[in-house]
Amino acid sequence: CRSSPQVGSDGRPMTVAALPPEEQPEAAPVQLPPNLRRQEVSFATKEPAGTIVVDTSNTYLYYILGGGRAVRYGVRVGRDGFTWTGVQKISRKAEWPDWYPPTEMIERQPYLPRFMAGGPGNPLGARAMYLGSTVYRIHGTNQPSTIGKFVSSGCIGMLNEDVSDLFDRVKVGTRVVVMPGGPPPGTATASAAPPPSGSVAAAPAQAQA
């Protein structure tokens, strides 16, 4: 993995400090509740084996094995106003992808870096699967505590080890079905507001709010 400091467009080293609170890497290991850990489960669906089904309202992603079975992963999904539904196909796969925040995200959060090289600390984590021509991806996260929460701008986030497992199972062209459903009323969603200047150290705590 790349350990050299990442350099911004102005030539100065870029750090994860520039990332929004919901993307600040967590240092401490997080133990997910049992229901959000990767496991094989019974799952009735008409979708063929090899399909990905995202159950947004329950924060699960299923990889269909066939025969009424699926691998279920806990995921984080879009916060209120950023959930979406529909059918896409995986258009591209990338290992340790570089991150270019989409224009829409920069308009909402102008303090974001315009580019971040792939590697530990990158918001896309270890793997990314790009969905059609949309700005949405299934990708890893360096914030395990956000799994099971409605915090993203529409992307589907997974533990790095889970996204690596899924990455090895799927291919470009894999069908992805995102089921309707958003956060239940009153669900805590992470704030997208930029951290106040000078309080970068407090940013991870904000993500837990």
Results as ranks from 00 to 15, higher is better:
residue 1 C to T: 14
residue 1 C to G: 13
residue 5 P to L: 08
residue 5 P to E: 03
residue 17 A to K: 07
residue 17 A to W: 12
residue 18 A to V: 14
residue 21 P to I: 01
residue 28 A to R: 04
residue 30 V to T: 04
residue 37 R to I: 09
residue 41 V to S: 14
residue 42 S to N: 15
residue 42 S to V: 15
residue 43 F to T: 10
residue 49 A to R: 13
residue 50 G to C: 08
residue 52 I to P: 02
residue 54 V to T: 01
residue 59 T to N: 03
residue 59 T to I: 04
residue 63 Y to H: 11
residue 65 L to F: 09
residue 71 V to C: 04
residue 76 R to Y: 05
residue 79 R to P: 10
residue 80 D to I: 06
residue 87 V to L: 09
residue 88 Q to A: 06
residue 89 K to L: 09
residue 93 K to S: 06
residue 98 D to W: 10
residue 100 Y to T: 05
residue 102 P to V: 02
residue 103 T to L: 00
residue 106 I to F: 03
residue 112 L to C: 14
residue 113 P to E: 11
residue 115 F to R: 01
residue 119 G to V: 01
residue 124 L to Y: 04
residue 125 G to K: 07
residue 127 R to P: 07
residue 136 Y to A: 05
residue 136 Y to Q: 02
residue 136 Y to R: 12
residue 137 R to F: 03
residue 146 T to H: 10
residue 148 G to W: 09
residue 150 F to C: 00
residue 153 S to T: 00
residue 157 G to I: 10
residue 162 D to M: 06
residue 163 V to G: 06
residue 165 D to K: 02
residue 166 L to I: 13
residue 174 T to K: 11
residue 180 P to L: 13
residue 183 P to L: 03
residue 184 P to Q: 08
residue 190 A to D: 09
residue 192 A to F: 10
residue 192 A to V: 12
residue 193 A to H: 13
residue 194 P to T: 05
residue 199 S to D: 07
residue 203 A to W: 12
residue 206 Q to H: 09
residue 206 Q to V: 08
